[in-house]
Structures are given as C-alpha cells and as structure tokens.
Amino acid sequence: MPKIVDHDERRLELVDATWRIIARHGLEGATMRDIAMEAGFANGALKPYFPTKDTLLEFAFGHVFNRTNKRIADVTQGKSGLEALRAFCLEVLPLDEERINEARIVIPFWQKAVNDPRKAEVHQESMDKWTADIRRCLAEARDSGDVRAGVDDAVIAGQLLNMLLGAQIEAALAPARRTGFGHAAQLEGFLALLAK
C-alpha cells in the first residue's frame, strides 16, 4: 500500500529546515540541496512543493508571519488597550532564539521584496494588519485613559512598528547566541511615554 503523504506537513518540515539552514549559513549559503538534506528528503523532493528557493522563501515568510500572529492571538485573548499592546509587541520582539531565527527569515525576504513587487505586496499586507492591530489597541488605551500622549495614534503606531522591525534587524545581525539587547526595557520605556 503506498504511503500517504501529508503535503501541508511536508511543507512545514521544509520551512523549519529552511530556518535552521538560514540561521546557520545565511540566505546565500542556503541551497535547496542543503534544505532537503536538513529536512531528511532527497533533493528532488522539494521541487513539487517549492520549485525555486524564492518560492520557499516567500512561503517561509508567510509561515513566520502566521506563526507570530497565532502567538499574538493567544497572548492577547481577553486583553485590551495597553495590556494587549504590550503582549502584541513582546511576541514580535526577538527576545529568544526562536524569534531571532524568525527575524533571520524575514530580513532576506525584505531584501528580495525591494525589487519584487509581489513580495513587497505580501510584506505591505502584513504590516497593514499589524498597524491596524496596534491602532486598535491604542484607541482602547485612549478610551481607558492609559494613553494620553498628544501625538496622533497613526504616528505612534508607525513609531512602534519601526521599533519592532528595527529590533528584528539588530538581533538578526548580532553575533550568534546573543539575546540581551534590552528590547523589552525599551518597549516599557516607549509605553511609559504614552501615558504622559
């Protein structure tokens, strides 16, 4: 009887292998052969799922974004305002090795998106969703009196999003195994300014 293959599971195994290879060797050092070997598959087994490294990278970015959003949904459930905003940001910030590796996937995707309109669109859709989520939390925090800053919420949301993305860049470019960047304290400092 032929083995039944779970194609979604195999795609995720390949994405996980991609993360590990990129984390160790960078995007340029990640060959399709190495990714297949890391996942325990023959090189040709990747082609039906990801015909090129580019398609694999796009899928990996989408998976990272969806995974982050799942964590955000879990930690913000039942929360609102500043409490939800803090929880949201802590899931995006690269505070551990897993989230630093996610940043190592995202940054090569951004590099490709500079000259690829499709990837730029995928990135913009992701950032639009995060901006809307941040603005919703800010509006709730204003309603409760926790945010009193005299700066427009659109500006605050942009500042906060840029801080989160900048933290990902800093962590991804840092020497291996370094995780102490002070990002959580920086977030608390930023949120404290919103109450003034």
Rank of each mutant, 00 (worst) to 15 (best):
P51W: 07
K53H: 06
L56E: 02
L57G: 03
F59G: 01
F59E: 15
H63V: 11
F65E: 14
R67W: 07
T68I: 06
N69L: 07
K70L: 10
I72Y: 05
A73D: 15
D74E: 14
D74S: 06
V75H: 04
V75I: 13
Q77Y: 05
E83I: 04
E83R: 11
L85R: 10
R86H: 02
C89S: 05
C89F: 03
C89H: 00
L90M: 09
V92K: 02
L93T: 03
P94T: 03
L95E: 05
D96P: 08
I100Q: 02
I100H: 03
A103S: 11
R104P: 00
P108A: 11
Q111C: 10
Q111K: 14
K112T: 06
V114K: 12
N115A: 05
D116Y: 10
R118I: 11
A120H: 10
E121W: 14
Q124V: 12
S126Y: 12
D128I: 03
T131P: 02
A132E: 08
D133H: 09
D133P: 07
I134T: 03
R135A: 01
C137E: 10
A139H: 13
S144I: 04
G145V: 02
V147Q: 01
R148P: 12
A149M: 10
A149Y: 06
A149I: 09
A149N: 11
G150F: 09
V151H: 04
D153C: 02
I156M: 10
Q159F: 12
L160S: 01
L161G: 07
L161Q: 08
N162H: 05
L165I: 06
